[in-house]
Design a protein around this nucleic acid. Sequence first.
DNA 1: GGTTGAAATTGACGTTACGTCAAGGTCTAC
DNA 2: GTAGACCTTGACGTAACGTCAATTTCAACC
Lengths: 248, 248
Amino acid sequence: MGWSIAEVARTSGVTSRTLRHYDAIGLLPPAWVADNGWRYYEHEQLLRLQQILLLRELGLGLDAVAAILEQQSRHTTVEVLRQHRDWLVAEQERLARLVHTVDRTITDIEKGGEMAPDTMFQGFEHNPYEAEARERWGDDAVDASHERIKALSADDAEKARTGYGRVHDGLAPLLAEGVPASDERVQELVDLHFQVISLFWTPNAEAYRGLGQMYVDDERFRQNIGQGNDALVTYLRDAMAIYADGKL
Amino acid sequence: MGWSIAEVARTSGVTSRTLRHYDAIGLLPPAWVADNGWRYYEHEQLLRLQQILLLRELGLGLDAVAAILEQQSRHTTVEVLRQHRDWLVAEQERLARLVHTVDRTITDIEKGGEMAPDTMFQGFEHNPYEAEARERWGDDAVDASHERIKALSADDAEKARTGYGRVHDGLAPLLAEGVPASDERVQELVDLHFQVISLFWTPNAEAYRGLGQMYVDDERFRQNIGQGNDALVTYLRDAMAIYADGKL
DNA sequence: GGTTGAAATTGACGTTACGTCAAGGTCTAC
DNA sequence: GTAGACCTTGACGTAACGTCAATTTCAACC
């Protein structure tokens, strides 16, 4: 009488390991255990297993499943399901925010891919670091960079239009509010900017300050970063200078 | 020279345990280790830590973070981030489906709360089970059930309008396609129906068959379940009868 | 009665990113 | 010398099993 663990496993689509696990945590003990230790299941256990699987499919944890089956009350069940639903929605929103942030970071990096290396080499071009740059990345890379920076057209600017989004998004309202560049919130954003830059190139204080100045001086950077709002770029430069003085 | 583990922990907002963990998995070894075994970190490690935290905030696993920092290439980084983004979106969609399913199940159960007990008792009312029902749930429950079933108004029907959604959603198109009630897809839906019912009441074959018949005979059930589509209710009854014969 | 193959059992480790003790050494200051 | 802060390694716990590994049992066949 009754079914063995493998038979139950086959007909219900779970592994015998899972059934043993459910036994171990007390969620689904077998109907009876033979003298040799073998587990045997009856119709009642099969039904309970189906209930477990139904609830598990909703994404509930086994503890929540156990709570529902223990109470067998509509009120408790709906209560647990509602909590679970709330959790699902919250998690979904968290993921949505992450997707957004990742998207922003990707465009930031891609924009960095179009501009930052050139920035980097241009920064070296007329200062004592150029020799080091040529040594570190090779003449070809530096020369190619010079080519690319010359070739930067309105097209590229357009392509990069959405870049530096995370920093831009946060900075613009702070500027509008008249928050000083030394403000903590501004410096946090600059820190983010510095970190994204630092994923591939770590400027020292002087280079970072120079990068900010270049954003202002070079029309393409000014346009890309400020999106027509030149004050924003100046603001970023000032904030970067303060950051460089304080943290680098 | 350098900072101790607790100093780094304080300034960067992680615990010393985390730093030890990052050392253990090779993600962030300290700059040097003193003779007494104490870890000391330099500026370079702080920077790397910031990079790690930046990427971790995007929801990346530590292995993905390690991959990015190991390569230090824009291409790899964007590649990893894109994969991660895809995963995030897929997960988000999965959660959205779960939310939907949980919602449906909640309304199913709540509708069950309004109708199934009455169904249950009504099912017993004119058959040999009524005595057992009175013994099992008490006279009060059965009498109250009779009161409630009499009081079922258009209001209640309206309240329950969205119930049995999962079954209804799946069944209607199959009926429209002319799929026979014995079809596997139909029977799967009936199985779902049976399982939701079984969360609180486990009918035997006869009771389940009777429940299906009642859906057809009683106007309120017919209306609630079929939403005006009487053929759907008949279809469900037939499918339930087949299910009862085959599985119960 | 012995052998074989299928099926069963109980461990126990691995997974993710640490949190949380626990036991014991080290440093600094009084 | 000792208190107190700080450091170390070690080990268990988390969720829900997957995946061996070693061993035992059962049913059937020769």
